[in-house]
């Protein structure tokens, strides 16, 4: 790693002040950032360690409202019986991170804001991986793990384990910055970059993700990941679903795909199709088809379209507690 400075603020205000300076990056669990620094994919002048910042770690369950501090580790969240009982799908998402060491080190904020796994990005070709003549290395190269919903030239996939579930739940992100606190839907944390300078998240310089809040009352959720192997790898495709209403009928359904697009991909048409419907093998299959209706796979990832259908079907089956 190249040399860098290090600051360990004690308060959110101090952290925000430090992060506002150019060349400063927030350090959470470090499992992703240190690899990027070792590989010289990212460079920093100073790391701002969030580990000792007061108020960023912990879990509160207040009525149906679940608040999770961004520096809470995945293991702390998995071990929180109240949170898991209120939202069993959290366990489905966290257990996908099948390395105890990564669960102990990795944080909720770090999971949400980890950088894409795209191998062109990881080899230093940038998030858009455009050749000098403007052509896409991804589209013309090996794109087997890339997006089936590319957005402009952004063809990487969002790798977060928790984001699809939180987006399906309509969770809010709590962000602190130089201007104070702002809240936004977790969905709005993400963007498909249009230029080489843009990132895949919408945080401004000096802003940090403090935590997330979700209403976990009165809905049924599930996460289903399709994986090549059970540990030490990211899934090929993931679906998170949230159903309101009880019994076989879904009053409202929200379906979100992970590892499918540069952002968590809200399959709005699929959710709308199921809303107000009884969940049957037929309606679920129709929703799964609708979820990929506008998919635009590339040369090497057509198989992911079927994985998405399967993930949606199985997640819906788990959320509804039925064999589908």
């Amino acid at each position: 790693m190249r040399p860098f400075g290090y600051a360990a603020p004690a308060t959110v205000e101090q952290a925000v002040g430090l992060l506002a300076a150019e060349g400063s990056e927030a350090l959470a669990g470090g499992t992703d950032l240190l690899s990027l620094l070792k590989d010289d994919v990212e460079r920093v002048d100073r790391l701002v360690a969030l580990r000792g910042v007061a108020g960023l770690s912990g879990i509160e369950l207040d009525g149906g409202m679940l608040r999770i501090g961004a520096m809470t580790t995945l293991q702390e969240l998995r071990d929180h019986d109240g949170a898991i009982a209120a939202l069993p799908a959290l366990a489905m998402a966290i257990d996908g991170v099948a390395s105890p060491q990564l669960r102990e080190m990795g944080t909720v904020g770090g999971d949400l804001l980890q950088r894409p796994r795209c191998w062109y990005y990881r080899r230093g070709f940038g998030l858009l991986a455009l050749a000098a003549d403007g052509r896409s290395m991804v589209a013309e190269g090996d794109n087997r793990y890339h997006a089936i919903f590319p957005t402009g030239q952004a063809r990487f996939v969002n790798p977060s384990s928790l984001a699809p579930l939180l987006v399906a739940l309509g969770a809010e992100a709590v962000v602190h910055g130089p201007a104070g606190e702002r809240r936004l839907p977790v969905e709005a944390l993400y963007q498909a970059p249009q230029t080489a300078e843009e990132r895949e998240n919408t945080l401004a310089p000096g802003e940090l993700l403090a935590g997330v809040e979700a209403n976990v009352d009165g809905s049924r959720s599930a996460v289903y990941e399709v994986r090549q192997r059970r540990s030490l790898d990211w899934p090929l495709m993931a679906a998170a679903v949230t159903l309101t209403g009880s019994g076989p009928r879904a009053e409202k359904a929200r379906i979100v795909l992970g590892h499918a697009a540069p952002t968590p991909h809200v399959a709005a048409a699929a959710g709308d199709l199921l809303s107000g419907q009884e969940l049957t093998p037929e309606t679920v299959a129709a929703a799964a088809d609708a979820a990929v209706e506008d998919a635009r796979p590339m040369s090497g990832n057509r198989y992911k379209v079927q994985l998405a259908r399967t993930a949606v079907r199985r997640a819906l089956g788990q959320a509804a507690g039925m064999e589908i």
């Binding site: 108020g55 501090g69 709590v174 104070g180």
Partner: peptide, 14 residues
Amino acid sequence: LATGLLTGEAGAAA
């Protein structure tokens, strides 16, 4: 669990 989760309040010792 530090005090003031997600409220931005500084903890007493912070």
